[in-house]
Design a protein around this nucleic acid. Structure first.
Lengths: 202, 202
DNA sequence: GTCTATAACGGGATAGAC
DNA sequence: GTCTATCCCGTTATAGAC
């Protein structure tokens, strides 16, 4: 945006947008150079290759968009407040970046061999505190005994998957962009109530 | 497999496997021809282009793998039996084709502009009968009043999403293939119980 | 650091013989 | 129908001048 950004940053940002929008394999380095307003040789000067640039971008995207969410999970909040806040913050983040899930899924298919070697990925599931909380409250009896793995998978499935299939949901229910956002907004309380109801003590 | 298969079929099957395994954009027509044991010119003789071949394959994959599931949803089964059977059949299908969700998600990112123009896609949500059932049972009071759109999205999210993030689940929980299948198998009853519990009358 | 020019390759698609 | 040969284009990456 600003003219004062250095070249490396301009390349990085242009590539980020294009990768998310068109996909890595359908974005050429010429596209990137053109969007960044520089020559394509500079791309190779700053990043050694397209794949290298992609690795950097992907790690950055993961880091940037998961820090706040992780902080919530590992906070000292009471469980139901934590779930409510997590669901809401997650959905807000994805609403601001509506293609992020879809892009991430595409990468998970494209690069599944190397995906777990990316350092930033462990950020996605550094949920020890949250896990412990569920186990301990289960022991205390304040919630039903719950498998934290399934519980976590349930939550992120219901939060993120609708973004991945957004075009299908819009088509099926004849929604425009605004109505889709409304549908997603409804899911905040829907998901929260749902997962909390299922761990209520018997 | 059999030597008697005609060429068109051999191309179709080779391409299907490669597309699912490596992704459409990372599969070349030379890869396809080689795997099918024919020359690449034949690919263009039978299908006009790679993109055309892909369209045919994608529609076929959707049709082939959703018919049984749709039949369950639109059957006369009682709601809780229907959900149980649907969840189980869906998970069985995906367990047999473990890359299908991931591939489908990648396509949903790659081809999201044209995805809803594909005829076979409407198969995915021809769920009128199921929808009606939820509304009517809600009115009768045999279940809680439930928004069928959210209910359906919840179900397919919890069923399918774990397959899309399989490498992450395996890494986080230190699972091998067998343990992952076990985790998925557990989800059959887990998901069924969860969604049914949430529509129990108040 | 930034550019132009180009190398080196692989891609999809087609012509034309058989 | 099936093949070989080839076209033509876009791709990533690099060499080398400034």
């Amino acid at each position: 945006m600003s003219k004062n950004k250095n070249t490396e940053q301009k390349i990085f940002e242009a590539a980020t947008e294009l990768f998310i929008e068109k996909g890595v394999d359908r974005t050429s380095v010429r596209d990137i150079a053109s969007k960044a307003g520089i020559n394509l040789a500079l791309m190779n000067y700053y990043f050694r290759s397209k794949e290298n640039l992609f690795d950097a971008i992907f790690s950055d995207l993961v880091n940037k968009n998961t820090q706040d969410l992780l902080q919530i999970l590992n906070s000292d909040l009471e469980l139901s407040d934590k779930v409510k806040k997590y669901v809401s913050a997650y959905i807000d983040m994805l609403t601001k970046n509506p293609l992020l899930v879809s892009f991430f899924m595409a990468i998970l298919h494209r690069s599944r061999e190397k995906i777990t070697e990316i350092d930033a990925i462990s950020n996605l599931y550094a949920t020890e505190k949250f896990t412990q909380q569920i186990i301990e409250e289960g022991k205390k009896g304040s919630i039903r005994k719950t498998d934290p793995s399934h519980f976590f998978v349930d939550m992120i499935s219901m939060i993120t998957f609708p973004f991945a299939i957004k075009p299908l949901i819009m088509d099926k229910n004849a929604l425009d962009e605004k109505a889709f956002d409304q549908f997603i907004e409804e899911r905040k309380s829907h998901i929260t109530q749902m997962v909390l109801r299922c761990i209520e003590p018997c």
